[in-house]
Computed example of a mutant assay.
Amino acid sequence: MNGLRVASLMAATMTTGLVAGVYAIYSNAFMPGLATTDDRTFVTAFQAVDRAILNPLFLGLGFLGAALFTLLAGLLGLKEKALPWIAVAFVLYVISMIVTMAVNVPMNDALKAAGDPATIDVAAARAAFDETKWQAFNLVRTVLATVSFGFLGWALFLTGKAVVQP
């Protein structure tokens, strides 16, 4: 059971870190880069990236896996010193998921629903998208997921100390 507890905590930490990294890349590279492009390039690139990220590796292992592994780590560590850190990490990560599903995904879907950039008014589609709002909520989910990752890292440290100590 101890091995499964540690493995689930390691998986939770790694997948949460990966998701936090994806969000951070959007904040620090992808969106600032797209902000400098013309409307057609922005709409085309954003639609393409949003379609590409909807894949089993990111959605299953990363986005959902981070929550499931964290929940499992918490359930397997109910009597452990690291549990409060795992619990807070889980809550923060779930809030980041809620922000994603309530704000960012609907905005992404609306931009995709605007249609083919070759046949639509791309300036209107981009304006309706509201990059500033998207980026603000992306920053919120980045911070939440990053803090969650940090708490899981601390929980992993505490778990390792408990395993090593007699």
Rank of each mutant, 00 (worst) to 15 (best):
M1E: 11
N2I: 14
G3A: 15
G3Y: 13
G3V: 12
L4M: 14
S8W: 11
A12D: 08
M14H: 07
T15P: 05
T16W: 06
T16F: 06
G17N: 10
G17F: 02
G17C: 03
G21K: 07
A24P: 07
I25V: 15
A29T: 12
F30I: 15
P32Y: 11
A35H: 10
D38C: 05
T41M: 07
V43N: 09
V49F: 13
R51Y: 07
N55T: 03
G60D: 07
G60Q: 09
G60K: 13
G60L: 02
L61Y: 07
G62K: 14
F63T: 01
L64Q: 14
L64S: 12
G65T: 05
A67G: 12
F69T: 02
L71T: 04
L71H: 04
L71G: 01
L72K: 05
G74I: 05
L75H: 03
G77K: 02
E80A: 13
E80G: 08
E80Y: 08
A82I: 00
A82V: 00
A82W: 00
L83R: 04
L83P: 01
I86R: 02
V88N: 02
V91L: 14
L92T: 05
I95G: 06
S96L: 06
T100L: 09
M101F: 15
M101K: 14
A102T: 10
V103K: 13
N104T: 14
P106S: 07
M107T: 07
M107C: 02
M107S: 09
G115L: 11
G115N: 12
P117M: 07
A118L: 12
I120F: 11
V122F: 05
A123G: 14
R126M: 10
A128N: 13
F129N: 15
T132H: 12
T132W: 05
Q135H: 08
L144G: 00
A145W: 01
A145C: 04
A145L: 04
V147S: 06
S148R: 10
F151A: 01
F151P: 00
W154V: 08
A155F: 00
A155V: 00
L156H: 00
F157G: 01
F157H: 04
F157Y: 05
A162G: 12
P166L: 13
